[in-house]
């Protein structure tokens, strides 16, 4: 395999309240021989909230982030579902709307940048599965996870909307041009099954197959593709608690020993709010919730410091 090299857009959470996400991501990449260049120039993606306040500003800032991957000539990867979606929604808009692209580039020109649309943007989960390959990951397993029932929690923004996912998170088809866009119109023009080939939002498989490649047992439960409620945690904590609590209890009731998610916002919400969600729903909730790269790092035999389980709020240090 030729060496894989990506520009990593860390997002804010990995630099602040979930340092374990960044350290485990870098550890996994090192173990697998994947080269990572950190996009230190990048700013916050707006997490859908900036988009609610000022859509144009969010397009400009996200386009700037992509510019830095383009300048390196590298595909961009993300380690947060919400960063992933907000970045590709910007890409989608600019690649499809020449007028908007010109308006955004007019602003970017003021700081000497230009958005071209030459870099792909995918979540690290799919880079691992589709570029590195599950079989190759399986060969690198040093600590099989065979004694764990692991509940995959996919997180909305990697799955939905499928007309965006299929275009950006799936590996690029041969002969297709990067930056051609097409996802926005795909909502109407592309057949259902084509949109669902890479990952179906109603029956997703990627995280399950990654768990199996690490020799863990993946837990089948209804809530795995549902919403955790993170984005209304401030204004509607009851909604957020009801959604995250229901998903956690569903996993527990299906004998999960731990939960794993590719999204740090899901992880924070599900890890940190177990006590308040449990209180609201009238049941005790205690389930370790790992970041996807933490789980992979665990199986690849990375160091304790790199995996960073001590940073998980619900006790996870016993997993080693």
């Amino acid at each position: 395999m030729s060496q894989l090299k990506y520009a990593l857009y860390t997002g804010c959470t990995a630099r602040e309240s979930t340092p374990e996400l960044l350290s485990s991501t870098l550890a996994v990449a090192k173990k697998l021989g994947i080269e990572i260049v950190l996009l230190d120039e990048a700013s916050c993606c707006g997490a859908s909230h900036l988009q609610d306040f000022d859509e144009f500003l969010s397009l400009v800032l996200n386009a700037r982030n992509i510019c830095y991957a383009e300048k390196l000539g590298l595909p961009m990867i993300t380690i947060c579902n919400t960063c992933q979606l907000n970045t590709v929604m910007t890409k989608e808009r600019l690649d499809n709307d020449p007028e908007m692209k010109a308006k955004v580039n007019e602003k970017l020109a003021e700081v000497g940048l230009e958005y071209k649309g030459t870099s792909t943007v995918r979540h690290f989960l799919y880079a691992l599965i589709d570029d590195y390959g599950l079989e190759n990951i399986r060969e690198k397993v040093e600590v099989p996870l065979s004694h764990f029932n692991i509940a995959p929690f996919y997180g909305c923004h990697n799955l939905r909307p499928s007309h965006i996912h299929y275009k950006h998170n799936a590996p690029l088809a041969p002969n297709s041009e990067i930056g051609e866009g097409g996802g926005e119109s795909a909502i109407q023009e592309v057949e259902l099954m084509e949109k669902y080939t890479h990952e179906s939002p109603y029956a997703p498989t990627s995280l399950d197959s990654l768990i199996e490649a690490l020799e863990g047992k993946s837990v089948d439960y209804e809530s795995k593709n549902k919403c955790c409620g993170f984005h209304v945690d401030l204004q509607a904590p009851e909604t957020s608690n009801a959604l995250s609590g229901t998903a956690l209890l569903d996993a527990i009731d299906n004998n999960a020993d731990l939960m794993v998610t590719p999204c740090p916002l899901c992880q924070l919400n599900m890890d940190l709010k177990q006590e308040s969600a449990g209180k609201q729903l009238g049941r005790d909730i205690e389930l370790p919730v790992l970041h996807m790269p933490q789980m992979v790092a665990l199986a690849l035999g990375c160091s304790k410091e790199e995996i960073g389980l001590k940073f998980n709020v619900t006790k996870a240090t016993d997993l080693i």
Binding site: C156, L159, R160, P161, V232
Partner: peptide, 20 residues
Amino acid sequence: WDCVKCFECAEACPKDVNPI
């Protein structure tokens, strides 16, 4: 403001209204 941004509505709509 109470929308959780799950995009279930965009996925569900048979007429591609894309409510979110």
